[in-house]
């Protein structure tokens, strides 16, 4: 499962990915590409099945994500993860832009996606209410969760959401394959 991460700089994309991938991974495979982009691979098991989903997460700085060099890498992503900082209104409003740019690469396919509000530990500084973000996510067909990488809260949740959604898509597609003959 090729997972596109997007979001403004400093919202915690790298921190979230690193925290998730380094926590108890049995077969952690990290590659630092010469381009300054990191590919992280982690296997997530799907509850109530014997299957697991291998996530290929490309992590890069927000501004590099759509450079010419990255274009090729991002053909046909399987899942979207958009991250914003709950203390930063601008990072939330930019999510629409990130989503549009990611969806432009999906060739009309349905992609599971999750919107992640990070930095919930900064309670007094929250600028984006959870309800508002949830409503926007729902309209956009994204699932929603909030995390605090600093407090190690919910860091696995967005990845499990994506893995489960992707697995569900696979099961539906296999049903279609059966119905063809």
């Amino acid at each position: 499962c090729k997972c596109s991460h997007a979001g403004d700089s400093a919202v915690g994309k790298t921190a979230l990915t690193q925290m998730f991938c380094s926590d108890g991974a049995h077969f952690q495979k990290n590659y630092t590409l010469t381009t300054g982009v990191e590919l992280l691979v982690k296997t997530v098991s799907v509850p109530e099945t014997s299957d697991s989903v291998e996530l290929f997460i490309f992590d890069s700085a927000g501004k590099e994500l759509f450079s010419e060099m990255m274009e090729k890498l991002w053909e046909q992503p399987n899942a979207l993860c958009i991250i914003y900082d709950v203390t930063n209104e601008q990072s939330f409003s930019n999510c629409a832009k990130w989503l549009e740019r990611l969806r432009a690469r999906t060739l009309g396919m349905h992609l599971p996606g999750v919107l992640v509000g990070n930095k919930t530990d900064l309670i007094g500084r929250r600028a984006v209410e959870q309800k508002r973000a949830e409503e926007w996510a729902e309209i956009q067909g994204l699932q929603y969760c909030e995390t605090s990488v600093k407090e190690m809260e919910n860091v696995e949740v967005p990845f499990h959401i994506l893995a489960n959604s992707f697995h569900q898509l696979y099961r539906e597609k296999v049903e279609t394959f059966h119905s063809l003959v």
Partner: peptide, 25 residues
């Protein structure tokens, strides 16, 4: 390699059985 839909299904002479890819190209 989803063991429920193995590549051997491609050469078993039946259109009803199939091999699936499980993500990415």
């Amino acid at each position: 390699s989803d063991e429920k839909y193995p590549p051997e299904n491609i050469i078993d002479g039946s259109s009803e059985t199939f091999w699936t890819t499980t993500g990415m190209f």
